[in-house]
Structure formats: structure tokens, C-alpha cells
Simulated scan of single mutants.
Amino acid sequence: MSSTKIAVVVGSIRKDSINRKLALALAGLAPSGFTFEDVRIDDLPLYNQDHDGTPSEQVKRLKTHIAGANGVLFVTPEYNRSIPGVLKNAIDHASRPYGQSAWAGKPAGVIGASGGAIGSALAQQHLRNVLAYLDMPTLGQPEAFVQFKEGLVDAHGKVTVEATQKFLQTWMEKFAAFVKLHQG
């Protein structure tokens, strides 16, 4: 049985990122037959259109990783009411040069966590706008704005709050079904 590969793009490069913890927890809730692979974005140069014809090895790696995936899971924090610059930089690199986007047609899920009560709602909305332009079908419901509190995810990547675990399980099942639907 072939595996459905999901590229996981975490919008935070912080060592103790709560969004990376959320991504790990989500991978643990996935149905069998799904594999989750982190996409490295912390070493990409700043996007510069002058380099579209001669991309760096890091950019080639990013585009290859996305191209080889059946779907993409974006897990993002909210920085100043939008997506982090490092995430936008990765999106721009893999979408270029024009007409050669690695993102096009890839089904996507958008989720995120923050310490605040509205989770990462505004960042997710901005990201959804960008993904629509990139021709990425994106799971619309359920939306998930996770308020992350200390201990929500344990050291083994397990969600410790039962209600949150059930909600995230449902979210993951919907995302998996969405990716399968778009695989054809």
C-alpha cells in the first residue's frame, strides 16, 4: 500500500516552537497510510527574482520536497497579525519562476497555535489568501485556531487535553479526506 506524503511547513523556526509541537501532535493523529515530512525553511536566502534562473541548493531542495508531496500542511504562528516572514519567503521561493510553482494543485491544510485567545486566526486568513492565488485547494472547515498553553502537548507529541485531542483528531481526519479527494 502506497503512502500519502504530506509536506509539513512550520512557519516558526524557533527552537521551542509551539507550532512545531502542534505539527508533531497532528502527525500522530493521522490515519494510517499517511507520512509527514518536515520541510526545512530556515536556511533559505531571501527571495530575489534576479536568482530565479539560478536557484540555490536550498531552494532546489524546497521545491523538490513540495513537488514530491501529495499535500501540504501549513502550521503557522501569527506575527503582527500576519504570517511570519520566513514562511512568506519559502512560499515565494517555491512559487517561482512564474509558471513553475511547486505549490500549484497541491491540497493544503492551514492550522496554527498561539498563546492568545484567537490562536492564529488572522495569520491563517492571510495565508489562505496567498494559497488561493497559488492554486492550492485549501481545507475550509473545520477551522482550527489553537490557544496553546504549557503542557498541551507532552514530550512525546501527544495532546494532553481530551477535548482538544478530539477536536484535532477530527480536524486531521477531515484534512486526510480532503487530500485523498484531491489526489484523484
Score class of each variant (00 low, 15 high):
G71R: 00
Q49N: 12
P45M: 13
V59H: 00
A104D: 05
F74Q: 07
A67P: 00
T54I: 13
Q58L: 08
P77R: 03
A30H: 07
W103P: 00
S32L: 11
R40N: 12
G105H: 08
A94V: 10
D43V: 13
R96K: 13
F34L: 12
H93L: 08
I41T: 01
G85I: 06
G53A: 15
H65L: 08
G109H: 04
D50C: 06
A25T: 03
S82T: 14
E57Q: 11
D52C: 07
D38Q: 14
R96A: 09
G85T: 06
P45C: 12
K88W: 03
T76Y: 01
S95R: 01
P97C: 09
V39F: 00
L46W: 09
A30G: 10
S95Q: 05
D92V: 14
T64N: 15
G71T: 03
A94F: 02
P84C: 12
S95H: 04
L62F: 00
S56M: 09
Q100M: 15
L29E: 00
N48K: 08
L29D: 04
A23R: 01
L62I: 09
G53H: 05
K106Y: 02
P84Q: 09
K60Y: 04
Y98I: 11
R40V: 13
N80L: 13
K60P: 03
G99V: 07
G71V: 04
T76W: 05
T35S: 15
D42V: 10
I41L: 06
A69G: 06
Q49L: 10
I91A: 03
L44P: 00
V59T: 01
V72C: 05
H51I: 08
A23G: 04
Q49H: 12
A104I: 13
L87C: 07
I41F: 00
L62P: 02
E57H: 07
L73Q: 02
L44I: 12
G105P: 04
V39I: 14
H93P: 02
A69N: 04
S101W: 03
A102I: 10
R40M: 15
P31M: 05
T35I: 14
R96Y: 06
T64V: 10
D52P: 02
L26Q: 03
I91P: 00
D43A: 11
P31H: 05
A69E: 04
R81T: 09
Q100V: 10
K106N: 07
V39N: 01
D50K: 14
P107V: 06
G33S: 09
A90Q: 00
D42P: 01
I83Q: 00
N70A: 14
V59M: 05
A69R: 05
V59S: 01
I66M: 05
D52I: 10
A108C: 15
S95I: 03
L24D: 15
I41P: 00
